[in-house]
Amino acid sequence: MKNLLAAAALLASLIIITGCNKGIEPEPERVVPPGETGFSGKITFEGSWPPGVTRTHLFVFKNAIQSAADFSFLNLSAVIDPVPYGSTQFNYDSIEMNYIEHAFLPEFKIQPGEHRYVIVAQSNNPEISFARGDWVIVGVYCIGGDQSKPRSLICNEGSITAGVDINVNFNNPPPQPPL
């Protein structure tokens, strides 16, 4: 009986020790002002940069580009500051690096909700334009590394969605939306 009690006491101790602790926890969500949202991540580049490129940006669109007309300001959610030519890695943060807000419209901010198309695109035009023909899509935020399957970006009010990473492989470009 004493043996049984000893075993039961040991078992209870183990349960108490282990049951109270959850171990590794996620980092606390980065808080932004109420009503605002944002996202952050990293763009990695593989292969040789094409010659003549003057602009490389990360674009976020509300919906996928089904036609050239969808590549428009009306469908646009965010544009990140330009990536320097020849970069192999580019870390970004949409609040710190909101290109439209800083260059054109101070009130332009990404809205909470689902954004279905996140891409990295390059242009040979020194000026920023919304002519679809000016841009070549070189990377897509996607599911399972398959660039034909875009992954939605979910932005929640009052927080930053981290880890929106995109891999650009110049030797293996993604499918191009209609021109």
């Binding site: 590794i24 926890e25 996620p26 980092e27 969500e29 935020y141 996607c142 590394g145 981290a162 880890g163 990473d165 995109i166 891999n167």
Partner: peptide, 9 residues
Amino acid sequence: SRNALVPKD
């Protein structure tokens, strides 16, 4: 750590 069960993209 906020996406602990998902690999790097």
